[in-house]
Simulated scan of single mutants.
Amino acid sequence: MFESTLERDLAYILPNLPTVVGVRDQVGPVEYVDEDGVVHNHTFDFVADHEDGTSTAIAVKPARRVGPSGLEKTLELISDQQSGFADRFVVRTGDHITRDRAANARLLHRALRGRNEADIAEILAVTNSMRGAAAITAILANSRNFGRGFMAVLCLIADGVLEHVSKGPISISSLVRVRRRAATNR
C-alpha cells in the first residue's frame, strides 16, 4: 500500500540504485522534540540501506507541500536528536521522482522478475568488448537473441553492470555503456 504515486514510484526506483542493498518502508515512528518542547512522532516513507553500511531516511512529499508542511525542519530536528537512526535525512519530491525514472524502474523490475541467466550471459559476452556507449539495438544485433536480449540488457542495467546514458525512458534505441565502477544490487 502506498499513500501516493510518488511513494509507489520511489519504491520502484530505490532498489535499482547501484549503491542500495535494501529498502525498508514506513519506518518509525521516530520521536523528536520541536523548538517549543512538544514531543512529536514521524514515520519515514523509506529507509535505504547502502552497500557502504550507511542509510538514508527518506520523506516523500509533493514539492509544493514541502515548505508549508515544515518537513525540512522536522528532518533537521530528527537528525540532531536521533543521530543513530540514519546517516542522512532527505526529502524526495517529483523533482527527484520523475516519470521517466519511475517508468525505467518499473521496466527493470519487470525484467528482473523474468530473469534468464543464459540470455544475460549471451548479452554480457557482447558487452565485454564494448568501448564507450552503444545503442541497445547494436548490442542485440551482435547477439543471437534479439527478442529476449532486450530484457537481458535491462537485467544488466539493474545489476549495475551497464548504465543507461540516454535521456528519457529506456528503449531499444537507448545508449548504454559498461558502468565505470561496477556496483551490484545482487
Rank of each mutant, 00 (worst) to 15 (best):
M1K: 12
E3Q: 13
S4Q: 08
T5A: 11
L6I: 10
E7F: 02
R8F: 07
L14Q: 04
L14F: 06
P15D: 09
V23G: 02
Q26R: 12
Q26Y: 05
E31S: 14
Y32Q: 01
V33L: 10
D36W: 12
D36H: 14
V38Y: 11
V38T: 14
V38E: 13
V39I: 15
V39N: 12
H40F: 13
H42N: 07
T43K: 06
D45I: 07
D45A: 11
D45L: 06
D45R: 04
A48V: 08
E51G: 10
E51K: 14
D52F: 08
D52K: 10
T54N: 11
T54S: 15
V60N: 03
V60E: 00
K61V: 05
A63I: 09
R64P: 00
R64D: 13
R64Y: 10
G67S: 14
S69M: 07
L71M: 13
L71C: 07
E72S: 12
T74M: 05
E76I: 07
S79L: 08
S79Y: 04
Q82Y: 04
A86H: 04
A86N: 04
F89D: 00
R92N: 04
T93G: 07
G94E: 15
D95S: 15
D95L: 15
H96K: 11
I97C: 05
R99V: 15
R99Q: 15
N104L: 09
N104K: 06
A105N: 05
L108K: 03
G114N: 11
R115M: 10
I120N: 00
E122Y: 04
I123K: 00
I123S: 00
V126M: 09
N128D: 15
S129K: 15
G132K: 13
A133I: 07
A134P: 01
I136Y: 03
I139T: 03
I139D: 01
S143T: 13
S143L: 06
R144L: 07
N145Y: 07
G147C: 02
A152M: 02
L154A: 04
C155T: 02
L156C: 00
I157K: 00
A158P: 02
A158Q: 03
A158R: 02
V165E: 04
S166V: 08
S166M: 08
I172P: 02
S173P: 03
L175I: 05
L175P: 01
V176T: 01
R177Q: 09
V178R: 09
R179L: 02
R179N: 03
R180D: 08
R180W: 03
T184H: 09
N185P: 06
R186F: 13
